[in-house]
Amino acid sequence: MKKWRNTVDHLMSAGVGVLFLFLWEMTGRLQILPAYLLPPPSRILLAMVRNADLLWQHARITLLQAVVGFAIAMLLGCLLALWLDYSPLARKTLYPYLITSQTVPIIVLAPLFAMWFGFGILPKVLIVVLVCFFPITISLMEGLATVDKELMDLMHAMDASTWQKYRWVKLPAAMPSLFSGLKISGTYSIMGAVIGEWIGGRMGLGVYMLRVRQSFATDQVFAVITVIVILSILVLKIIQLAEEKAMPWQQHDQSQEEPVDQQK
């Protein structure tokens, strides 16, 4: 019954997407909007297929920068969150700075990084790290802080060490919160790399996008945008997959009926 409803829901949302693409295609075919402003999906697809090699070469670089930056942000973010959770003193002194640091829009730092570190991979990775770092730190901190107090009391009553409290209770309890932060950061990571590439460089989707824009190839600009969207979705899906693998107990919460109590 539930499965059937799910299928219907999926069909409905897929239908809306198809309808949208169809109307878009019609704006081009019926020449409501000129193709140099809004090329129809078929033209965009054609541009993607024709430039597949070139797109892939640039996408590889963007993906590399995003993944490396994301990995570094994850490592640093988790370490900082753990430290701030463990030490109340560190939390009291550093947390205000952590929050204020977010009022600086990272994008305005990008030209500065280009000045300092040139046009290679490094400044782009740095931007990705800065963009991804905050959501990961905050979400893990929140997850660690909201652990059931009574559960921690029980661990205390069982004389658990600090490491044991983290290993058995705090870290697993913080996982759902951590993953929601990872998902936000994951989508930011591609965006961060592209913004970094806009400032300057030789390779990457951001660089390529500027190039095709200058030659007024609107269909190719859209092709790049499409690839960027696909990459972002891909990163998100991989994180979701990791989430399911990391928390197998979550699947059991809704999917299974309660077994009848043996003694009744």
Binding site: M158, D159, W168
Partner: peptide, 30 residues
């Protein structure tokens, strides 16, 4: 001094991320 007597709360306080066997064994693991 904690850790001498065992203590059970009104809530079951089982770890949702562990199966029953591991939950029951938790004090031994600790």
């Amino acid at each position: 001094i904690a850790g001498r007597v065992s203590f059970m709360h009104q809530k079951d306080l089982l770890l949702p991320w562990r199966n029953i066997l591991d939950n029951v064994c938790l004090p031994l693991f600790l």
